[in-house]
Amino acid sequence: MSQYNFTFSEVMTKKPKPLGKQLQFGKYFTDHMFVMEYHHQKGWYDGKIIPYQPLTLDPASMIFHYGQTVFEGLKAYKSKDGETRLFRPKENINRLNRSNARMCIPEIDPDLALAAIKELVRIENDWIPKQEGTSLYIRPFIIATEPYLGVSASKQYKFIIILSPVGAYYKEGINPVRIAVETEYIRAVKGGTGEVKTAGNYASSLIAQEKAEASGFAQVLWLDGHDKKYIEEVGSMNVFFKIDGEVITPELNGSILPGVTRNSVIEVLRDWGVPVVERKILLEELITAHKEGRLEEAFGSGTAAVISPIGELNCNGEALIINNQETGEIAKKLYETITGIQYGHLEDKFNWIDMIE
């Protein structure tokens, strides 16, 4: 057990575990969950691991009315030698606390949060799937629970961690996806909450996603909320473009989420000596580069899919086919390198892996 002495109540009857071929993203959940309480007079207290179960909340709990919540997403992997590996968990915890600060939620001791994640994953070790491309998705989140209808920051919260064995996020896997450029709706604006992981960002994106899926696209390419001409994200992922041998990604500007995988991609590219630049990218610049044959690759990066190549960008009915709708060399190599480190096939030269004993 961890030094924080979380109490553990073991489930009486364990669930059947899904087979690897059954795994989808976020459909199955493990036997246990972590729960911790916060009260403004006591701080964070009573961390415990209990059987996975529904929550009982007062109807006036502020999460239901004012959306005060944050969440994170990271994964645990099983190596061929049976090791249990976490990929950069401290980065996710640091980002969780940045989200907390923006959403007026009390921060959590990073060491405590990491200990809770490790202890829960250790208990649920048998739930980590072993097939290549599968993992145990870890979802820490915080919700405001004070029963009060005044518009203010809550004085009570729950910190919860749930686990889900998962397969590929996109059914296409590492194969290129079709993306629609979204010109009507916006995801976020500078000064808003786009740079943190809070539920409202995702709720407001659903209408564009549904519109895109109805037209046969996997996701949307988001433009900035001010001018609607600069590229920001692709779906819920950061986005990269290879133009004239240089990899370009939108600079962090207050409305773009600073992805852990995004940071990892940049570090790997720089280690390889590949030119990589963070700057504003005009949609028109991308269209021009495509017309002139200089747009060589495009791909998204994120925890769920790791790397997702883009084979087509569709802008107002005009299809920009990228790399003959084939996975590009850089995207493929990045996917193989990052997943190779995650699963223990490659040396962890960046010190990204946190082992669970």
Results as ranks from 00 to 15, higher is better:
residue 307 I to G: 01
residue 234 V to C: 13
residue 312 E to D: 14
residue 59 P to Y: 05
residue 175 N to G: 03
residue 65 H to K: 09
residue 309 P to D: 01
residue 167 G to A: 13
residue 275 P to V: 01
residue 116 A to D: 02
residue 110 P to Y: 09
residue 288 T to N: 14
residue 170 Y to F: 15
residue 160 I to H: 06
residue 345 H to C: 05
residue 233 E to H: 08
residue 5 N to E: 14
residue 67 G to S: 12
residue 278 E to W: 06
residue 235 G to F: 02
residue 49 I to S: 00
residue 327 T to K: 04
residue 26 G to M: 03
residue 210 E to Y: 15
residue 327 T to S: 08
residue 258 P to L: 08
residue 39 H to G: 15
residue 174 I to Q: 15
residue 82 G to A: 05
residue 163 L to C: 05
residue 91 E to D: 14
residue 10 E to K: 10
residue 40 H to K: 13
residue 332 K to P: 04
residue 73 G to R: 11
residue 239 V to H: 10
residue 77 Y to S: 02
residue 163 L to R: 03
residue 347 E to H: 04
residue 87 F to P: 04
residue 187 R to T: 14
residue 110 P to G: 08
residue 180 A to F: 14
residue 97 N to S: 12
residue 223 L to E: 00
residue 61 S to N: 03
residue 290 H to L: 10
residue 8 F to Q: 03
residue 340 G to S: 08
residue 218 A to S: 12
residue 281 I to Y: 03
residue 182 E to F: 10
residue 62 M to D: 11
residue 67 G to T: 08
residue 43 G to E: 03
residue 133 G to V: 06
residue 243 I to V: 07
residue 68 Q to C: 14
residue 221 L to N: 01
residue 84 T to P: 02
residue 54 P to K: 13
residue 47 G to M: 01
residue 195 E to C: 12
residue 216 G to Y: 15
residue 255 S to N: 11
residue 167 G to D: 12
residue 178 R to H: 05
residue 296 E to C: 00
residue 348 D to I: 01
residue 15 K to F: 05
residue 25 F to C: 10
residue 259 G to Y: 00
residue 246 E to C: 13
residue 166 V to G: 12
residue 271 D to P: 05
residue 120 L to N: 02
residue 294 R to I: 12
residue 218 A to M: 09
residue 353 I to N: 07
residue 289 A to V: 03
residue 255 S to C: 11
residue 10 E to I: 04
residue 9 S to M: 11
residue 12 M to V: 15
residue 111 D to L: 13
residue 195 E to K: 11
residue 69 T to M: 11
residue 262 R to L: 02
residue 349 K to D: 13
residue 342 Q to E: 11
residue 294 R to L: 09
residue 318 E to Q: 11
residue 257 L to N: 07
residue 354 D to C: 13
residue 29 F to S: 11
residue 185 Y to W: 14
residue 128 I to P: 00
residue 305 A to S: 10
residue 178 R to Q: 07
residue 289 A to E: 01
residue 320 L to K: 04
residue 32 H to Y: 12
residue 135 S to N: 08
residue 260 V to R: 00
residue 75 K to M: 12
residue 134 T to Q: 04
residue 299 F to A: 02
residue 150 G to W: 08
residue 219 Q to I: 02
residue 333 K to L: 07
residue 274 V to N: 06
residue 176 P to T: 06
residue 318 E to H: 11
residue 171 K to D: 14
residue 260 V to E: 00
residue 183 T to A: 05
residue 42 K to D: 06
residue 2 S to N: 14
residue 322 I to Q: 05
residue 44 W to Y: 08
residue 52 Y to L: 11
residue 176 P to Y: 03
residue 299 F to N: 00
residue 285 E to Q: 04
residue 16 P to G: 06
residue 357 E to R: 10
residue 168 A to Q: 15
residue 57 L to I: 07
residue 15 K to Q: 08
residue 196 V to H: 02
residue 338 I to V: 06
residue 305 A to Q: 06
residue 325 Q to W: 15
residue 331 A to F: 06
residue 59 P to T: 04
residue 71 F to D: 04
residue 159 F to Q: 05
residue 69 T to D: 14
residue 273 G to Y: 03
residue 198 T to W: 06
residue 233 E to L: 07
residue 9 S to T: 14
residue 323 N to A: 02
residue 141 F to R: 14
residue 195 E to V: 14
residue 47 G to K: 00
residue 255 S to Y: 06
residue 286 L to W: 00
residue 255 S to L: 11
residue 192 G to K: 11
residue 288 T to C: 14
residue 315 C to E: 02
